[in-house]
C-alpha cells in the first residue's frame, strides 16, 4: 500500500468541480523558503498559490466523485501517474485541502474495451499531463464556435434573415463549419479516450452525441437542398419547401448539443 499526500490547488467550488482537478504535491510547498513578503502573500487567500513554481503542478485524475451536500463532495478514486489510488477526501468549496491516497485494488474489475482505451498512452497523456486535457478542451471550444456559429448562420439565412448573404455562398460558409466539425471530432476523440468508461454510461454525454449525430444528418439534408435550389432562391423564385423546417430543427439540435455538453460537467 502506497500512501502519498496531495493538495488540490484549484479547489473549484463544488458546483463547478470538473472531472479532473489540477493538483500539486503538498510537501513541496512546505520545503520552499518563505520570506516575510511571501508569507504575507500566503495569508492572502487569492494570491496563495503564487509561491509555488509551475513545474510542481500536475493533473490529478479524479475517477469517482459523489456529492455529499451542496458544499461538499467526496472523492473516492483517483488516478495519478498511471496508478489508481483510493482516497476518502472531502472537498469543501474552493479551498486548498489535503487528499490522502492509497493504492487501489485494481484486480477486482474486469477489463473492457473502454478501460483498455483509457490506459493507452494517448489517453494517459490527455488525462494526466499538465496540458493535454486543456489543449484539447481549448481546441474543442474553437471548433464548437465554428460549427455552431456557421451552421446557425446558414439556418438563419434559410429562415429568411441576413438577406444580403446569397444562398449560393452558403455552401462555402458551410465548409468553414465542417472544418470546425473536424476539429471537434478529433479533439473530442482525444477527450473521450481519457474518460471513456465514464462517458459511455453518462446520460448527458450520450444525449449530446445523439444530438450532434442528428444535427449532422440534418446538415447533410439541408446542403442537398441548397445545392439544388440556391440559384432559384437567389433569383427570387423557387419554393423553399421543407428546408426552412430543417433549418429550425438544426438550430434546436445544436442548442441542445451545447446544453447537454455543458451539463456533462455538472450531472
Amino acid at each position: 500500500m502506497t500512501n502519498c499526500t496531495l493538495g488540490v490547488v484549484y479547489g473549484l467550488p463544488v458546483t463547478r468541480l470538473r472531472y479532473g482537478v489540477n493538483a500539486r504535491i503538498d510537501t513541496e510547498i512546505r520545503k520552499r523558503p518563505i520570506g516575510a513578503k511571501a508569507e504575507q502573500k500566503q495569508t492572502n487567500k487569492f494570491l496563495h498559490s503564487r509561491i509555488v513554481p509551475k513545474r510542481e503542478q500536475f493533473r490529478l485524475y479524479v475517477y469517482k466523485i459523489a456529492r455529499v451536500s451542496t458544499e461538499l463532495i467526496r472523492i473516492s478514486f483517483v488516478r495519478y501517474n498511471g496508478n489508481s489510488y483510493q482516497t476518502d477526501a472531502l472537498l469543501h468549496n474552493a479551498s486548498v485541502q489535503d487528499i490522502r491516497l492509497s493504492k487501489a485494488n485494481t484486480n477486482s474489475e474486469e477489463s473492457t474495451v473502454f478501460e483498455a482505451l483509457e490506459t493507452t498512452a494517448i489517453a494517459l497523456w490527455v488525462g494526466e499531463s499538465l496540458w493535454g486535457y486543456p489543449i484539447m478542451l481549448g481546441l474543442h471550444v474553437v471548433g464548437l464556435a465554428m460549427v455552431v456559429g456557421l451552421f446557425v448562420m446558414r439556418d438563419l439565412r434559410l429562415i429568411g434573415m441576413l438577406d444580403s448573404i446569397s444562398f449560393q455562398s452558403l455552401l462555402s460558409l458551410s465548409k468553414l463549419g465542417w472544418m470546425g466539425f473536424l476539429i471537434n471530432v478529433i479533439s473530442g476523440c482525444f477527450l473521450f479516450s481519457s474518460q471513456a468508461t465514464y462517458f459511455v454510461t453518462h446520460t448527458p454525454f450520450l444525449l449530446k452525441i445523439t444530438m450532434i449525430f442528428l444535427a449532422t444528418v440534418t446538415a447533410g439534408l439541408i446542403q442537398q437542398r441548397i445545392r439544388v435550389g440556391a440559384e432559384e432562391w437567389d433569383s427570387g423564385s423557387g419554393s423553399f419547401g421543407v428546408v426552412r423546417n430543417l433549418a429550425i430543427v438544426s438550430i434546436a439540435l445544436w442548442m441542445g448539443a451545447i446544453i447537454a455538453g455543458r451539463l456533462i460537467a455538472y450531472l
Binding site: 464556435a145 465554428m146 456559429g149 448562420m153
Partner: peptide
Amino acid sequence: SLLFGSLLV
C-alpha cells in the same frame, strides 16, 4: 458561437 461564428465570416 454567435460572436465567433459571424466574426469568422
